[in-house]
Design a protein around this nucleic acid. Sequence first.
DNA 1: CCGCCTCAGGAATGCGCTTTCCTCGGATAG
DNA 2: CTATCCGAGGAAAGCGCATTCCTGAGGCGG
Lengths: 338, 338
Amino acid sequence: MATLADVARRAGVSPATVSRVVSGSDRRVTEELRSRVLRAVEELQYVPNAHAQLLARADRTAVGVLVHDVSDPYFAEITRGLQRVAIEHGRLVIICNSYRDPERELAYVELLRAQQVAAIVLAGSGYHDAAFTKALAGKLRAYERSGGSVAVIGRHELPGHAVMPANEAGAFSIGDEVYRLGHRRVGVIAGPQVLTTTTDRIAGLRRAARAHGRTLPARRIAYGDFGRDSGAEATESLLAAEPDLTAIVALNDSMAIGALAALRALGRAVPGEITVTGFDDMPIAQDVTPALTTVRLPLEDMGARAMTFALDPRATGPRADTIPAALVRRASSGPPPN
Amino acid sequence: MATLADVARRAGVSPATVSRVVSGSDRRVTEELRSRVLRAVEELQYVPNAHAQLLARADRTAVGVLVHDVSDPYFAEITRGLQRVAIEHGRLVIICNSYRDPERELAYVELLRAQQVAAIVLAGSGYHDAAFTKALAGKLRAYERSGGSVAVIGRHELPGHAVMPANEAGAFSIGDEVYRLGHRRVGVIAGPQVLTTTTDRIAGLRRAARAHGRTLPARRIAYGDFGRDSGAEATESLLAAEPDLTAIVALNDSMAIGALAALRALGRAVPGEITVTGFDDMPIAQDVTPALTTVRLPLEDMGARAMTFALDPRATGPRADTIPAALVRRASSGPPPN
DNA sequence: CCGCCTCAGGAATGCGCTTTCCTCGGATAG
DNA sequence: CTATCCGAGGAAAGCGCATTCCTGAGGCGG
């Protein structure tokens, strides 16, 4: 790997001159020397060592993004928004996947700090785990004290700027819709129980139930991992225990799609015999059959906002946005059969 | 930001000792000093500067991944495989999105080199652009000469290890299937014309046509951007020009899903009146209605292979794998109406 | 014609860390 | 009791670059 010194030697100038030419300093360099340097750079295919540069001038330019899994459409959308804003600011984005492992999440925050990123954006649900949350919050605060900026999406328990999807309210609106349609026996297929997203959404559902004079018994909640296949499994187990459910409320679209598949395999008509609803309104929600009734979260926009917060230099105290969730009625919901 | 020197001062030891404790050197340090150092690290929330470490010990640990767009399911799947292997090797992955902009692709390769990554994996179609290809190949070769390892997925024109999906053969098999079903008027909705993936797949289709004594006229090919919406648009324009097409062959699943949506809006039954096929077999292909007949590419596995190649230390010459594509018959295809 | 100012180029320092090399005290052997 | 060895801790060099400071040459005014 060619170094700046190599270039200097080849061009017959001092390292200082090469540095000035290569990294566009405002110091003037004669055209003669400049072209000699440029030629040497070309011949050597020289690329400055970013780490050395960073060490020497200490300007933090990269930003870190920590999500559960980019290949999950939910995070893919958020990441798209995150990236767009980062690119507009000329920032390099380092994406890390925790795969919902708290340990790994902690490790990645350290790693991102070590990489001297200017900002860290944490996207994805928090955990019901006080010790872990405290440890993570501590690390994040230390990072902030050292000049870093942090933004979180959907995690109220952490320091930094926050973009909060209205999980509880969104779940309320979909629960309200289902009860209003006349459903009485409603099953819920949920994500991991340790995630705050899961419990927040269930809380919204419970509030809707109460508003309609009903309750949501624990036996009608099946927990999965937010994945499509676990949605199918959860649906099967719920139906095995209570075949006469008239609605399945999924806590995200992937699980709802799994539910649709399970129901199709079982030969149960949707929404004729049973209603299915999702959450998030991923792009694919409108292309499955029947098209999913769900709650829309502007995922890309949420990502963009979070990155905007994180990159905002004049951050006077932590900012917070609550993102409203809008009910989207499509073909997968209807009144219960009589 | 606390530095190693700060820790040394606080613990009352030399920087060398701190370094030995913190980065787990094999040099022995007395328990007494070790615990003092650890305490200081804790109190100061010290995290070593990764750039300084990298500069000092020059071991490259991160790897770079350059894709068109992680939020595209195609790349999301590939990336998942890439990441899995990278994690197994204890590597940090830096993901960059070129958004199909050749300029940006070039810039990111430089950036990745500057970051001193141990390997660069390029995933996604190549371009029909000789000047660009030459420039990119040159940069990649320079990177290889300086000790970097490169692997590409689906880009024959570049140096390095290669994982090649059987685009031509896969397209042949789906074309063969469609002609075998008896279709005579077949429309194709394709990705950008400048991408080799597009032309390779069309070539396979053409070969299938020839094998059945048919041809694939240019007017029956509509180009889009591989996105869902452009699939819908392409379908509409194809059908507007030739309403009596009996099959739409999409060059990827996203466009096929768009076609399905357009056809539904047009009230044309699939596959009763018109057959639709996809390509890639993304997870969602089985959940749309009707389930997509498509060609299966083991995307995650391809990613895993590419990363394995890239990280293989004993790389004796470039390795190459061709990934077979398997026809998957589902509900969206059938014989043409008589 | 001389002194001063301007400006381009180079020498040198430091960023935060690892690692080699040196030092010094204690332990061991003679 | 002294010579030698061993091992733990510290001093210092160096990784590749940016940047400050210094130097020397040319241009200007007096």
